[in-house]
Amino acid sequence: MYSSIIQTLAVAIGFAACSVDAVALRRSTKKLTQGTTWTLEAWGYDDTSKGDMIDIDLQTSSKDYVEKLSDGGQYVVCYISAGTAEDWRGDFLDMMNFAARDSRYPGEYWMNITRWQEFKHLIKARIEEAADKGCHGIEPDNTDAYEYGSMAITGESRESLRQYQIDYIRWMAKTAHALGLQIGLKNTVDLIPDLIDNMDFAINESCAKYSENDYCSNYDAFVKQDKAVFGVEYSTKGSCTDAMSEGIMRKYKNMNSNKWVDC
């Protein structure tokens, strides 16, 4: 019996060591620094480039596919929605227990971020799935409910939701980092000063489109820390020259096209 116990302990320690080694290995991979090229697969349009980083949908991508991309030399970022319940996801009904209102997207409902501590176990499960599949990082989308105030959560305002949003994103960052994953800030431009030290890279939609508000310049904080900033525009309005000078690796999609084009 004593020998059996020793063997059992040895196996358990071996598994623990493997787990630690896996986390250490993922953390030792290259960081997403300024100038990192990328491929955008997650958002449903074609991208024929082969960037240093590839952004894929977590829940529709198999572990084997993630491994194939990683073995091919790409840094794999896995997309999740952290702020909406999506009616095509397997955990939709569980998420809807904490949903607030229809979002601006078909089939999606804003999560009530004032209750994030009640639904964080659902988001943690997604982050753990990303780690299990071998993703190097995550892209949590729809983390800007606070910007919509009562349009997202009845009875709330931008000001009343702001701290909930910050606390929720910081929790996600802490959870991801504990699993050896990097995490990107998706949009949520106004919160960059509060979150820059928690985030490893950034992804933006349409900051050039709203250039009159000087949105793109907010990413200077990432540039100064040599953290990658990835961006997309849904039309050709804007300048690729500006994107490069602003430290943003940008893609464009022509209005009637289904393909991303690199700047």
Rank of each mutant, 00 (worst) to 15 (best):
D200M: 13
G90Q: 06
A130L: 11
R170G: 03
I127P: 07
N142Q: 06
L93W: 13
K253E: 02
D214Y: 11
K186I: 00
L122T: 06
H177R: 12
V66H: 04
T236P: 00
I169D: 02
Y65F: 08
L32A: 05
S61Q: 04
D144C: 04
K174T: 08
N213Y: 11
G14R: 10
Q74P: 03
R26Y: 01
H121M: 00
V20R: 05
C216K: 01
K227W: 05
S103W: 03
K31Q: 07
M151G: 12
I203G: 01
Y2I: 05
S150A: 14
N213A: 07
V223A: 12
D94F: 07
I183V: 12
Q59C: 04
V261N: 02
N256E: 08
K186H: 03
D194Q: 10
K251T: 09
A24I: 09
I138P: 06
N258I: 07
S61A: 08
S70C: 10
A82P: 08
E156T: 14
S4M: 05
V76F: 08
I248V: 14
D71T: 11
K68S: 07
N258Q: 04
W171I: 04
S157D: 08
Q225E: 12
H136W: 02
Q163I: 00
Q225H: 11
M244S: 14
C207I: 11
M249N: 05
I169M: 15
K174R: 08
A99I: 09
A10G: 09
R27I: 08
Y75I: 12
S3V: 13
Y75K: 14
K30L: 07
N213K: 10
V189K: 10
I123P: 13
T188R: 12
W116E: 02
Y105C: 06
K237F: 15
Y164F: 15
W110C: 08
F230R: 03
T8F: 01
I203V: 15
N187K: 08
D52L: 14
A208R: 01
P106F: 00
M151N: 14
G137I: 00
I203Q: 07
A131R: 06
E41M: 12
L58Y: 13
I138C: 11
Y164R: 02
T60A: 09
M111A: 05
A243F: 15
D102W: 00
R158M: 06
M249L: 05
M255P: 00
I183R: 03
G180F: 10
T241I: 02
T154D: 06
N213V: 02
I13M: 14
A12D: 05
V23A: 04
N256R: 07
S49F: 15
W171M: 09
K253M: 14
R126F: 02
G238S: 08
I169W: 09
A173E: 03
Q182D: 10
A85C: 08
T29L: 13
M199N: 00
T37C: 06
V20A: 14
Y148R: 06
N204K: 05
Y215S: 01
D197W: 09
E108H: 13
R115S: 08
A85E: 01
E128V: 13
Y168P: 00
K124L: 11
H177K: 13
H121Y: 14
I166M: 09
S217A: 15
N258D: 04
A228N: 00
A10I: 13
Y252Q: 00
D190L: 12
D141W: 10
